[in-house]
Nucleic acid binder design. Structure first.
Lengths: 340, 340
DNA sequence: CTGAAAGCGCTAACAC
DNA sequence: GTGTTAGCGCTTTCAG
């Protein structure tokens, strides 16, 4: 049987239905459909039902691109982070994601790999979507990135670091203080021959600030950093393992080693276990991040627990709270564990 | 000094410069600016330079919302994953992200928390942006989600699971086979009194498929699963620790335990270390995922390494390769470790 | 090689 | 309450 010719133009195949298709089917105007759908203004029950039916029938999904352009109010939020391999950033993203989608926003994410040039590119690309806000990790950016962020005309949240000058909203904790606290822990336990094992810091400003705080305290106590080993790779268990071996080869008399983070420190822990180096009697070690693996291991690692999820959440919340430029210090928690 | 009145209308403050501001400043038409910026068609060097200067001067950033609407070609790709806490998904996202931004696309991400209803909502929300493609984890979706995905008019990549019928592009490996391989490993080592420790599987279809494959092999060998402990929380080291304790309390005669993933298994490993249960002589354990922590520990965990990064990358690549609907099995690697 | 004009799909005044 | 009319900022024919 041949299909009858419908008096109503069917939506073009391939493309999705538009508001005008819905309006035609429901026998009302586009603006009425728009109102019903956004429950703005009032519409009669009858019309509302007819519109809903048409929407269902056509499988209509409003086009947010058009909506955004018309209303100049996007629901996109740009999120720029340096990495996804380090659980810190997925945690941050998760916190942000929770707050964002509670408020009806969607994160567009970009990963810089700690490369300032990529950060610039990504920020520019996100800004092109005229997002409702921007979330970035850290407060150290290239001049151009900072300028773009400043001139974007939207709120910006910089997360995870409060040591320095922020653009707008800053939520995090002091990495400098974390480094200092770590050194103080070592010193209070009587360690004096101290070394450092880290990943490449040139671009990881937060790890660099921790090391700075750490060495400051040592210096104040008249102690040098006796040896340090920096791997060029990103932080990882494997890297920590190898690097600890190397630093101990350079100076076998070390009695404590500070690691750039828990991944590296867990690697160090494994190295010691495999080589019969007893912790902490022969060597004390300390990490940073407060990862589960570090805290729940049979010999819990000394570390610093950071409120990453909360930082992400608060950052995202403040973006739309309408408050003033501010710095929120969420602090961190020193965990002694059993390795110092 | 008072500023002179410029013959050129400055861009409205607050709002960012538009293409028409650039056109006016450069003394050309909007379409010329558009061409120059997208290097489409040809334009004289002179004009190109003038446009570039105007762009710089105004700090003009093209509005992609408008661009997308006009050209009906978005550079957004929707990515829907169940979680960010389990490193598997950040890895997947990283792989996808690599491929996407090499091709000039940007991921908009949504996290479902393993909730099918949230998945529906998120898919609908992403589709509203008329993305260039969709990436979702798994091939098990609610009917409505599947229908939306099918009707979206864009390529869809379903990742991490190939056991079942996909919508379009499917990239992953067989979780069923992974479960079978695990059981076979236990059996080949002579273990017969086997238990299971997992997180809540109702919504984690991939973990459920692994368990199914695992028990199939046991059944084929005429063996029952002697005891199993399911925690209601998401998988974690802490959960694995507690759950192993419970399952051993229920049946102290178990000689091998299969875990739903490495997080749980590492918890189990810790429980054994803390309670003097020697592995594998007293108890064999096996996880899944091939996490660094599991593979690099002094006693490497038996596990299955999955090519998560590669799955993400291939999935994203195939989205725009223009090929036919297909299923790509990237396989997995069984790692015996030292716990069986 | 460049400009003019017509939208993309939707929202937002403003009338009716 | 509901329809009409202009755009939002850009791309894209189509002329010139």
């Amino acid at each position: 049987m041949q299909s009858t010719i419908s008096p109503i133009r069917p939506p073009r195949t391939g493309a999705s239905a538009t508001i005008s298709d819905v309006a035609r089917l429901a026998g009302v105007s586009e603006s009425t459909v728009s109102r019903v759908l956004r429950q703005k203004g009032f519409s009669s029950l009858k019309v509302r039902i007819r519109v809903q039916e048409a929407v269902e029938a056509l499988g209509y999904v409003p086009n947010r691109v058009a909506g955004t352009l018309a209303s100049s109010g996007s629901s996109l939020v740009g999120v720029v982070i340096p990495s996804l391999s380090n659980i810190v950033f997925p945690d941050l993203l998760r916190g942000a994601s929770l707050a964002l989608d509670q408020a009806g926003f969607q994160p567009v994410i970009g990963v810089t790999d700690y490369d300032p040039a990529r950060e610039e590119t990504l920020v520019a690309a996100m800004l092109a979507w005229r997002p409702a806000g921007m979330i970035v990790a850290g407060i150290d950016h290239s001049d151009r990135t900072a300028a773009m962020l400043r001139g974007a005309g939207v709120r910006v949240a910089e997360l995870l670091d409060i040591d320095g000058e922020g653009i707008d909203i800053v939520v995090g904790f002091s990495n400098l203080a974390a480094g200092r606290a770590s050194a103080e822990l070592f010193l209070s336990h009587g360690y004096r021959r101290i070394g450092y094992v880290g990943h490449y810091l040139g671009l990881d400003h937060r790890a660099a600030k921790r090391l700075l705080g750490f060495t400051q305290v040592l210096a104040e106590a008249g102690l040098p950093l006796l040896a340090s080993e920096i791997v060029v790779q990103p932080s990882s268990i494997a890297a920590g393992k190898e690097a600890l071996a190397r630093v101990l080869a350079v100076d076998p008399t070390l009695d404590a080693v500070y690691f750039s983070n828990d991944d590296m420190a867990v690697g160090g822990l494994f190295h010691c276990m495999e080589n019969g180096i007893s912790i902490p009697s022969r060597l004390a070690i300390m990490g940073y991040n407060g990862l589960d693996i570090a805290r729940l291991s049979p010999q819990p690692l000394a570390t610093i627990l950071t409120p990453r999820l909360e930082v992400g959440r608060r950052g995202a919340e403040l973006l739309f709270a309408g408050g003033p430029k501010e710095v929120v210090d969420l602090g961190f928690e020193l965990i002694e564990g059993a390795t110092v």
